[in-house]
Amino acid sequence: MIEARGLTKRYGRQTAVSGLDFRVEPGRVTGFLGPNGAGKSTTMRMILGLDLPSSGSVTVNGRRYRGMVWPLHEIGALLDARAVHPGRSAYNHLHSLAAANGIPRDRVDVVLEQVGLAAVARKRVGGFSLGMSQRLGIAGALLGDPGILLFDEPVNGLDPDGILWIRTLMRSLAAEGRTVLVSSHLMSETALTADHLLVIGEGRLLADMPLDELIARDATDRVEVRAVDHHRLAGELRTLGGEVTLRPDGTLLVVGVESAAIGELAAARGHVLHQLRDVTSSLEEAYFRLTEGSVVYRAPVPA
């Protein structure tokens, strides 16, 4: 488990992270969302003891990272896939990491096999594609078979096969009872992998809740209806108190009347329905509602 209390980081006069309180629990994938520059990477570096908090604290399994003697057995991290000496082979890179934490050398072969790099284990890392480097970074995180895993933007540069692979990997790691924290700015990807979300913007915690709850929170549920006589149905729905919009293709978008009520009304009034469907809002919409006004780098909207 990872626990942050009042975690704050200032660089000179700029505050990168301010007063974060959160717990990352085992047994589920926690997505760490926020726009670029929101403080995700800073937070991850503080979890790993690389940067020192200006105030507050963050602990891993109840202890500060810098005090851990064999950290890779408890927590593994993928930070920057390119942070490898280009002249070293994938095998030797992992071997040096394993040696630093008393991890048996056979584990290197095991994780190389697991991430699909066994065939290029003796090749120099300098020649690796971004996707291969990403897999090597993940191998490094898995090396100590840790109970906690940290992934910073793990799907960057991966092909669709790779993305599916890492999604499955993260889900199975969480299913084994491990703590998994994944930072990302890809909404659709996060929606597919995460059970729980931490959202930060401008260094502050905006949300800490299950994915479903975040999407459902103050989301307006809409119902999509296709009826043969949509004009008559629209009028009848309005008298029930619904807010109805007629789309150009003839579909009605209804807010304020539940789908069950619409179905009963249609049956009672003899309407022929071609479609009756609940429309839930997406993570992307929920995310934009949350981070609105806290986007640090925003491109000017093209005219």
Binding site: P71, L72, V84
Partner: peptide, 18 residues
């Protein structure tokens, strides 16, 4: 400095915080 240049130092210090 080679480790600082590539960023490998972060991996090294994450593996050995001492």
């Amino acid at each position: 400095t080679g480790e600082y240049g590539t960023g490998l130092i972060r991996t090294t210090l994450a593996a050995t915080p001492q």
